[in-house]
Amino acid sequence: MNVMEDTELKEMWKEYDQRIEQAKVLNLQAWAVNLQTIEYLQAHKAKTKLGSLASFKIWMVVFGMLWVVVLGVLLYGNQGKNIYFTVSVAMLMIFTLLANAVYIWHIVLIRQVNFSESIITMQEKLSELQASTINIVRILWLQMPFYTTWFWNSKWIRDAGLNFWLTAVPITLLFCLLSIWLYRNISYKNVNKKWFRILFRGKDWDSVISAIHYLDEIEEFKNR
């Protein structure tokens, strides 16, 4: 047998279809009994499936808000005495709030997931939600230079003299360049690059990377 006709394929499916029909495997009564159990079991399971993505993001918002409170207390305690500390902490607060806003937006989107949308739309939305964790990481990287400046103060800069310009400033500049480079390069298109895989390796990132690959697969499916 070297060539196969379309009709043969359809016959194979029909044969399979008939077997299912003949089996009369389920009846109304059985479902009537089971429906309540299914409802109970799945209501709990749903919380652990799609809900697990939401709960991860909710926890991140909680941690983010706690961090903002801590930074706020520090800022209040400083009372603007040290301009470097004030600006650095204020910037850290802004970036954390930005990341939190994105997380909250994601939670809203997860709540709106609708399984009756077309398969491509629904799968794209779900994968985008998972993959977009990367975008939050991009934003968070931008705050890195401010972790190298919060302890600066005018007296220290004056006393350190050349050492300040040869050590503290280059380190901060390096962090600036690194964070800007990462912000520009952490994107779906670089997912297969070695540095990307090193940066985002581990079990927690696997589902994010897989979602990015799936988005490519969906795009290919739409256009191929």
């Binding site: 499936k49 799609l50 399984f115 009756s116 949308e117 077309s118 398969i119 629904m122 799968q123 779900l126 897989s210 799936y214």
Partner: peptide, 13 residues
Amino acid sequence: RVALNVAISSYRK
């Protein structure tokens, strides 16, 4: 739509 979306999402997970 519902059945296939659930199946694909569950399978991928």
